[in-house]
Simulated assay, not measured.
Amino acid sequence: MRTIDRLSAPEFEPCVKELAELLVDAVDDGASLGFVTPFDHEAAAAWWRAQAPAVAEGGLIVWVCREDGAMTGTISLVRASKPNARHRAEIIKLMVHRDARGRGLSRALLATAERAAIEAGAELLLLDTETGSTAEHVYLTGGWTRYGIVPDYAGSPDGTLLDCSFFYKRLRVKRRDG
């Protein structure tokens, strides 16, 4: 059985160990998520714990997917804090454990975050990913629009510079009067 649940602030800390395991698995598998190898559980847990204040304040929303009790995926939504940007949000840290890939988890997690963004009043979502990655294919076939590629934008876990694709998705069609 699959569930996708938003983590409240009190639920977040007890999930840090499993979130760290997902992050280590993704980095070990070569995902460009902002970390380089060697990358261990302690470093991953420290990164997640550093996100706790943003979760508590509501600026970062984290969902986890569980299948038969095991955490198999996560996605986060960062709400814009600038007054002139409150109509947009950013998808970050979409991760699916390598043993759970190919079952539609990424799309289910994205749909969950998109619905929540709409409910929060966001009209525009942004994200970035490694050019040519499986994740890029998910976005290209999921209604996202690539608006640019920046060469050598980020390093892979082994330090190799990678191109990065930037995407947006309109959640609502903005009506213009006139």
Results as ranks from 00 to 15, higher is better:
119 E>F: 03
119 E>N: 04
119 E>Y: 08
120 A>R: 09
120 A>P: 09
120 A>S: 09
120 A>D: 10
120 A>Y: 06
120 A>N: 04
121 G>P: 08
121 G>D: 11
122 A>G: 11
122 A>N: 09
122 A>S: 13
123 E>G: 14
123 E>T: 11
123 E>D: 09
123 E>Q: 11
123 E>Y: 08
123 E>A: 12
123 E>S: 12
124 L>W: 05
124 L>F: 11
125 L>T: 01
125 L>G: 07
125 L>F: 02
125 L>H: 06
125 L>W: 01
126 L>N: 08
126 L>A: 08
126 L>H: 09
126 L>D: 09
126 L>F: 08
128 D>M: 02
129 T>S: 03
129 T>Q: 04
129 T>E: 02
129 T>L: 04
129 T>M: 03
130 E>R: 04
130 E>A: 14
130 E>Q: 12
130 E>S: 04
130 E>Y: 01
131 T>Y: 05
131 T>H: 11
131 T>V: 10
131 T>G: 09
131 T>C: 06
132 G>R: 00
132 G>Y: 01
133 S>A: 00
133 S>H: 01
133 S>P: 01
133 S>L: 00
134 T>R: 05
134 T>Y: 03
135 A>C: 04
136 E>L: 01
136 E>I: 00
136 E>W: 00
137 H>C: 09
137 H>K: 05
137 H>L: 12
137 H>P: 06
137 H>N: 14
138 V>R: 00
138 V>C: 08
138 V>P: 06
139 Y>V: 03
139 Y>P: 03
139 Y>R: 03
139 Y>Q: 01
140 L>V: 04
140 L>R: 02
141 T>Y: 12
141 T>A: 15
141 T>E: 14
141 T>F: 07
142 G>H: 08
142 G>E: 07
142 G>I: 06
142 G>D: 14
143 G>N: 04
143 G>F: 09
144 W>G: 11
144 W>R: 03
145 T>E: 13
145 T>F: 11
145 T>L: 10
145 T>I: 13
145 T>D: 10
145 T>S: 12
146 R>C: 15
146 R>H: 08
147 Y>D: 13
147 Y>F: 15
147 Y>C: 15
147 Y>I: 15
148 G>W: 00
148 G>K: 01
148 G>P: 03
148 G>R: 02
148 G>N: 03
149 I>K: 06
149 I>N: 14
149 I>Y: 09
150 V>W: 10
150 V>Q: 13
151 P>N: 00
151 P>Q: 01
152 D>A: 14
152 D>I: 02
152 D>F: 04
152 D>M: 08
153 Y>P: 05
153 Y>H: 14
153 Y>M: 08
153 Y>S: 11
154 A>T: 09
155 G>W: 08
155 G>Y: 13
155 G>R: 15
155 G>T: 15
156 S>D: 11
156 S>H: 02
156 S>K: 03
156 S>G: 14
157 P>Y: 02
157 P>N: 04
157 P>R: 05
158 D>I: 08
158 D>C: 11
158 D>H: 12
159 G>Y: 05
159 G>N: 06
160 T>P: 14
160 T>K: 15
160 T>N: 14
160 T>E: 14
161 L>F: 10
161 L>G: 09
161 L>W: 12
162 L>T: 06
163 D>V: 01
163 D>H: 03
164 C>L: 09
165 S>A: 08
165 S>R: 00
166 F>T: 07
168 Y>P: 11
168 Y>I: 12
168 Y>K: 10
168 Y>D: 14
168 Y>R: 13
169 K>P: 14
169 K>Y: 05
170 R>Q: 13
